[in-house]
Computed example of a mutant assay.
Amino acid sequence: MTLLRDHDLARAFDHASHSYDRLTALNPGYRADLDRSARRLRLPDGGAGLHVLDLGCGTGASTRALLRAAPYARITAVDASAGMLRRALTKTWPDRVRFRHLIAEEVSTAEEGPYDAVFAAYLFRNVTDPDGVLATVRALLRPGGRLAVHEYSLSGSAAHRALWTAVCHGVIIPAGTLSGDRALYRHLWRSVLAFDTAPEFAARLTDAGFTGVRTVPVAGWQTGIVHTFLARSAAGTPRDAR
Rank of each mutant, 00 (worst) to 15 (best):
L141C: 05
A77P: 04
G58V: 00
H160N: 15
F124M: 09
V107E: 08
A88F: 11
V118D: 10
R64L: 13
T92P: 02
W93A: 06
L140W: 10
P94S: 06
L163Y: 14
A104I: 04
R74P: 04
V107Y: 13
G156D: 13
A73M: 05
A158C: 03
L102M: 11
W164D: 08
L102A: 13
A88K: 05
L53K: 05
L140F: 12
A77W: 05
T76S: 15
M84C: 08
S81I: 01
L67I: 02
G56R: 00
L163I: 10
L53P: 12
R161Q: 15
V127N: 04
A104K: 02
A61V: 02
D131S: 13
P130C: 03
L147V: 15
G132W: 04
V133H: 01
L50E: 07
A162S: 15
T90I: 00
L102K: 10
T59C: 03
L85D: 07
T136L: 01
S157K: 11
A159P: 02
R161E: 15
L163P: 00
H160A: 14
E111A: 11
D129M: 12
T92R: 15
F119P: 01
G132M: 05
P114S: 05
P94Q: 06
R96F: 09
A120T: 05
E105I: 00
R87G: 00
E151R: 06
R64A: 13
A110D: 15
G58R: 02
L66V: 04
D95P: 13
A80Q: 10
Y72L: 15
F119M: 09
R100W: 09
G113N: 10
L123K: 02
F99A: 10
V78Q: 00
R142V: 15
G60D: 06
D54Y: 07
E111F: 12
R68L: 11
P114Y: 13
A135C: 08
L123S: 06
R96S: 12
D129H: 14
L134S: 05
S155F: 09
L67S: 00
E105N: 01
A139D: 06
D131R: 14
G58I: 02
D79M: 05
T59E: 08
F119A: 09
A117G: 10
A110S: 15
L154S: 04
L66C: 04
R98K: 12
R64E: 10
G156P: 14
R87N: 00
P94H: 10
V118A: 09
R64G: 00
T76N: 03
L89A: 13
R64T: 03
S155R: 11
A158V: 10
T90H: 13
H101N: 11
L55I: 03
R87M: 13
G156S: 11
E151D: 14
R138I: 05
L53H: 12
Y72G: 01
A69E: 08
T63K: 08
L89P: 00
R98C: 11
T109W: 03
M84E: 07
T59G: 04
A104D: 07
T59Y: 04
D116N: 14
T90P: 00
G83K: 08
W164R: 03
L85G: 10
